[in-house]
Design a protein around this nucleic acid. Sequence first.
DNA 1: CACTTGACCTGTCCGC
DNA 2: TGCGGACAGGTCAAGT
Length: 324
Amino acid sequence: MPELPEVETVRRGLHELIIGRTIKSIREFESPKSFPNAASDIKTFLIGASVIDVRRRAKVLLIDLSSEYTLVVHLKMTGQLVFVGNTAGPAVASAPTSRSHARLEVGVAPRDVTHGFRDLERFGAGHPNDSLIGELPDRSTRVAVAFTDGSHLYFNDQRKFGWMKLFPTVEVPNIDFMKKVGPEPLEDAFTASAFIERIRRRNGTTIKAAILDQTVLAGVGNIYADESLWGAKIHPVVRVRDVTDKQLAVLLKEIKYVMNLAIEKGGSTDKNYVNAEGKRGSYIDFARVFRQEGKACPRHPDVIIEKIRVAGRGTHICPVCQLQ
DNA sequence: CACTTGACCTGTCCGC
DNA sequence: TGCGGACAGGTCAAGT
C-alpha cells in the first residue's frame, strides 16, 4: 500500500508524536512474521529505550532508539503505524465503516490546466481528514508498543506482509534492502541524467515495470507510477529503450511533482492507509487516472480512462494522451 | 544475466 | 444468501 508519500507522511507524524517517549513493554498478537526477531532482542534493546529519531529511506521507516538499535518497519500493502496517546488525544473517533471515505463529487470542478488536477484549493475545502481507525488494538493489530507515559504505538497489518525488525543502528545501511535500493527521487541530487543512466539498465522491460523497480529509484508504487506516466504522456507498456531521454526527463519531473503534491495532501487513502494519527490522506480525491477508469481524462473530456494490466498490476491510462 | 510470474495473507467485491 | 474467483497500494524467490 504505502508508497513514498504515505511513508513520509507517517514519518512526519511519528516524528512529532513519539520522539522522547520511552518503551515500557511490547505486546505481540500471534503474528510471528510481523516481528520476526522480537524474541531474541526485545528485552535488551527495546524495553527501557527511548525514541531519538524517526527517519525514512525509500518505503521503509527507521525508528532510532537510545539503545543504539533501530526499529525498521516496512508497511508493505496494508500496514499501519498508529499512535494513540496524550499529545494527540485518543485516535478513537466514531467506528469506521468501509465506505466512510467516499469520493467527493463536484459537478464542474475547475481543472489545473498544466497538470490536470481539479482546483486543489476549492476541491479540497472542507474535506474531513476522517479517522479510519476504531479502538485499538483491533483484529489487524500485530504488535503494540507501550510507552511509559501510557501512550501506545500500534502496528496494524491486515494482510501480514509488513514487518518490523530490530537492527543495530550502525548496521541499518548494510541491510540487503538498503544496499540495493535506488536513490531518493525527491533529493535534488537525483537529476534527470542520473535517472536516465539508472533506468537504461532496464531497457528491455516496460517503462512502468522500470519505475516500479526499487533498485532504479526508491519509492514509486502503483498509484504514483500511473499518475506520473499520465503526467508525462507515456504509455506504461512502452519499452524503456523506446522512451527518449527527453521523455524520461519529463517523467522524472512528473514523479517529483506528483510525490510532492501527495505529501502535501497527506498521501493516498484507498482502503487501508492512514497516517500516524489514524487519519486518511486525500491525494486519491485528486487522482487524474488512478482508480478513475470509466471517467473522463482531465485533458480529454470525451475520452474515457481505461484500466489495463501491465507488469502484473492494475494500470490506468488515457488511451489518447498515452499513445502506445 | 534480464525479465516475468507466483507466493506471501486477509478481506472485499462481483458474477453466477 | 451463498459460493468461487479475481483483485488489492509491495517485495521476494523461483521460474523461463
